[in-house]
Design a protein around this nucleic acid. Structure first.
Lengths: 147, 147
DNA sequence: TTCAATCACTACCTATTCAGTCGTGATTTT
DNA sequence: AAAATCACGACTGAATAGGTAGTGATTGAA
């Protein structure tokens, strides 16, 4: 429920990789410049994305990062959870047991649960491919690969 | 997009008022005790709720707060926005103009917008009455008033 | 009329988190 | 060997979260 700059930058970076999917590794420095992301900060995000096995790293000169899966198969939820941890409601996290009347659970819990669920649905149903810039640009790269 | 303890406590307090709707003012102290909310903190939340005209205050002994509208007509969105400010995406807030390819807008913007919208829908469609404890408890109070 | 209960307002405080930066090392290509 | 790149951990300044404290204003009840 807490979205920070990690998600913003991380999703942007992931979209960039989606745009370049199949065209070899893209360096963090390149993405940082293109997207206006602080380079040393982005570096850390890629460490998290690699540990979540969303990207794989290629070290050395001409190295960089590549998506480990097709951009259609990677969702924003994957990226966000890799960077921010599990997407849970930031409130009413089972530490609170007060009730309205006699109910055994927090009276507000249903709405927080619905909120988390709605957010999760949006993120889980949005692939990197669907965000990857003008779709034709993406398609053009794809068709170039097919040849 | 940022939900803090203010929302958690504020919605709980609002539910409490919903449970007691029509039965005169309920003091902040009483709600704080019943719901396990730090009293001085809750006091501040009520200031915000009053300024948003969601509740009205009754000063002096036997005073407290009452909902200004029927619990069916007050939504969680009302309460959350009164306490946290307008519900907007915490990321991609129009300060960022980078693009994927040649698009004029941030490539990730659509998903953040959808997320905000989804959250808003959930909160706007949840009334205090629907959360107010066991609905029968609430109904009982209501029918008692009708007599 | 006094007193206690209650809301009103402002200021203040402490710990955590955010949003990075920095230094250094490891790996690979050229 | 040199340059480019990723890897890892420590560090930091600013903001925010989550309260607390002091004081004052208003009102009902004794």
């Amino acid at each position: 429920m807490r979205l920070t700059a990690k998600s913003e930058y991380g999703v942007l970076a992931a979209i960039d990789l989606a745009c370049n999917y199949g065209a070899g590794p893209v360096s963090a420095r390149e993405i940082a410049e293109r997207r206006g992301i602080p380079p040393r900060f982005l570096e850390q995000l890629f460490v998290a994305l690699r540990r979540a096995e969303l990207v794989s790293a290629v070290r050395g000169a001409k190295g960089g990062f590549v998506l480990t899966r097709d951009p259609n198969e990677v969702t924003v939820l994957d990226v966000v959870e890799a960077l921010e941890g599990p997407l849970a409601s930031s409130v009413c996290d089972q530490t609170r047991e007060e009730t309205c009347g006699k109910s055994a659970t927090c009276a507000a819990a249903p709405v927080w649960a619905k909120a988390t669920s709605a957010l999760r649905d949006v993120f889980a149903s949005t692939s990197l491919a669907s965000l990857a810039g003008t779709q034709d640009t993406f398609d053009k790269r794809q068709s170039a690969l097919d040849r």
